[in-house]
Design a protein around this nucleic acid. Structure first.
Length: 588
RNA sequence: CGGGAUGUAGCACAGCUUGGCUAGUGCGCCUGGUUUGGGACCAGGAGGUCGCAGGUUCAAAUCCUGCCAUCCCGACCA
């Protein structure tokens, strides 16, 4: 198929659009692949649409290959199923809600667990029908507070979501593994290097969960990668190692000291080091202190309960990690009003002995895993201007449990092998997780087992960001001058540039080459524009990013064409007579 | 939702401080001509509710008030 640049619906931009910051957004706009139509909503132009469709095609092939079957739901969905699972309210302001002319509530689907569950319930009722794997490629709607980065986070986007239905956990594991391997194939074919990391299942519920992240500075997810072993995890899901308990038999008794004007860790450490009577072999440091952070947890019904977390003073509580731990409860700051209601808590001097469910305030108190038995700490004494030194965990205070929610840093020790871990950013390309029976239970999806007994079906849920993949591929495959599509998703196989003078042999030679390539099944973008200078043609070709560019120009007089590999950056001269075959071979 | 910035032609921007005639520049677009291997040149054109609404004024892109939108950072985010 020949697509002529003289008639193709596209206009490249010379200047970078001011609204675009990251490379993929900038280049997709400049090269004429997409246009912004609404905040978080993009129009796909012919070239962009072809990339999107090729990505969809690869996803379809791999899903079909594992035996999943494609269906298609409406994006416009009724309220009732989402009421049944509580997501009509749980989803909060991120859900697009609307009403029909009679005032009946609808929503635009953000994801379709409910509909798939009900569909299977509608049609199946026997264990003999299981397992079944269904998927769709669908436009999803989420009223994101802040869409950004072009296609990377929109309010309307294309996602492939699939769901597995099994009788038991062993079946679920098989379904999960099949999807996981399909995803590995999909991302390999898309030219996306992905890292598979342990993830939190978040508000979706369920157990085992992994994310496929494409490492990129533009990514919104943070993950750790062990420098030695194969441990990789989203920072939300990192579980740090627990040190062994030291010997505390020589630790002196706890001592309350006056520490006026030390509301922060740094001021406290400075004061400790200035006190002659507290000198020890190593100077006091932030990691000797135990910081007690208070938050409020909010239930769906709006009620709030306090929670205290003790972390070493050199670390902060990572709110994302805490949110992940307490989900579906929401974390709110502990406000002035909350302090006022509990006058025994002295801001800046809160100590473990005021915390814990056994204490009068009854505040649940959780400790960072680093705070193991027999470790000694400097911490608040629950009195203004006073701290306590040598407060030993287990000897002098106790907590209600462990909370691994302190921030994770570059070089932190790997929980598996203790080697240093690296922190990186990534774009979430896919997410697989074992949903379990949550949706099946509330929506009543049961089948009869071989003994004629009703059994609740167990589910898995698997997503691929299809439109996001287009951006991620662009993010990963470009250089300073333009896009460089992998062959598997490029909108065209070859970009043929006619770069000669009017009336010379270049135009017929280019036409003939394009015809030969097209006849062999290649998609050819032919720059047949007249009155356009060669510089513009070259720049446009480089910007648009087809993997191969053929220059039909001054070489024609000597019987040769110039074949440029946009990915490798190489240029080869090929005799005209052999050119078509050469290119076809390269594209195979 | 908090912080910062910006709204002037398809794209990038100037003009606003200190109000003044017909709102400018570059790119892109149209017509004619000269060009043709790295974003050509000459001449002539088309294209604008200056984000919206109100106010001040003889006069508003410019000053005032309110609103809206977009972008960036953060919060949030199956």
């Amino acid at each position: 198929m020949i697509h002529r640049l003289s008639t193709l619906f596209v206009r490249t931009l010379r200047d970078d659009p001011a609204e675009a910051e990251i490379p993929s957004h900038r280049l997709l706009l400049r090269a004429g692949y997409i246009r912004r139509a609404a905040p978080g909503g993009y129009t796909w132009l012919p070239l962009g649409l072809r990339v999107l469709q090729r990505v969809e095609h690869i996803v379809r092939e791999e899903m079909n290959a594992i035996g999943a079957q494609e269906v298609h739901f409406p994006a416009l969905l009724p309220r009732e199923p989402y009421d049944a699972t509580g997501r009509w309210t749980d989803y909060g302001p991120n859900l697009f809600r609307l009403q029909d002319r009679r005032g009946v509530d609808y929503l635009l689907g953000p994801t379709h667990e409910e509909m798939f569950t009900l569909l299977v319930k509608d049609l199946y009722s026997s264990y003999k029908d299981l397992p079944v794997w269904l998927y769709q490629i669908q436009t999803k709607y989420r009223d994101e507070a802040r869409p950004r980065a072009g296609l990377l986070r929109g309010r309307e986007f294309v996602m492939k979501d699939s769901y597995s239905f099994d009788l038991d956990d062993e079946g679920l594991q098989r379904s999960y593994d099949a999807h996981r391997s399909a995803y590995v194939n999909i991302f390999a074919r898309l030219g996306l290097d992905v890292v598979i990391v342990k993830a939190m299942s978040g508000a979706m519920g369920g157990s085992a969960s992994e994310e496929f992240l494409a490492p990129s500075a533009s990514g919104e997810d943070t993950f750790v990668r062990c420098s030695q072993c194969d441990y990789r995890a989203n920072t939300e899901a990192v579980r740090i190692g627990t040190p062994s308990a030291p010997d505390a038999s020589n630790t002196p008794a706890a001592l309350v000291v006056d520490t006026p004007n030390t509301p922060t860790i740094q001021t406290l450490v400075d004061l400790l080091n200035s006190r002659q009577d507290l000198q020890r072999t190593t100077p006091w440091a932030a990691h000797d202190t135990l910081k007690n952070v208070l938050v409020m947890l909010r239930q769906a019904d709006g009620s709030r309960t306090p929670l205290a977390i003790g972390v070493p003073g050199d670390r902060d509580v990572d709110m994302k990690r805490l949110e992940a731990l307490v989900a579906p409860l929401e974390v709110e700051p502990f406000g002035e009003g909350d302090f006022a209601a509990r006058p025994t808590l002295i801001k800046g001097y809160i100590g473990p002995n005021a915390l814990g469910e056994a204490q009068p305030l009854g505040i649940r108190y959780l400790l960072d895993p680093r705070v193991v038995a027999n470790t000694a700490w400097v911490t608040g004494a629950n009195a203004p201007g006073r701290h306590v030194v040598n407060l030993v965990c287990g000897r002098d205070f106790a907590a209600d449990g462990v909370a691994d929610v302190a921030d994770v840093r570059d070089n932190d020790a790997c929980p598996m092998c203790s080697a240093p871990m690296r922190i990186e950013r990534g774009i979430e390309m896919g997410h697989v997780f074992q949903l379990g029976r949550k949706y099946a239970e509330v929506l009543g999806l049961q089948v009869l087992d071989e003994k004629g007994k009703q059994r609740v079906v167990t589910m898995g849920s698997y997503g691929v960001g299809v439109s996001r993949a287009v951006a991620a591929i662009a993010e990963m495959h470009h250089d300073e001058i333009g896009l460089r599509w992998p062959r598997s998703v490029a909108p065209m196989d070859v970009h043929v540039v006619i770069a000669g003078k009017a009336g010379d042999q270049t135009a017929p030679a280019g036409e003939q080459l394009a015809a030969e390539l097209s006849a062999s099944g290649l998609h050819v973008l032919l720059d047949d524009r007249t009155g356009v200078s060669p510089g513009v043609r070259f720049k446009d070709a480089e910007l648009m990013g087809m993997p191969m560019i053929v220059i039909v120009g001054r070489g024609v007089a000597n019987g040769v064409l110039e074949v440029r590999d946009r990915i490798a950056g190489t240029t080869t001269e090929v005799p005209i007579a052999e050119a078509a075959q050469h290119i076809i071979t390269c594209c195979a």
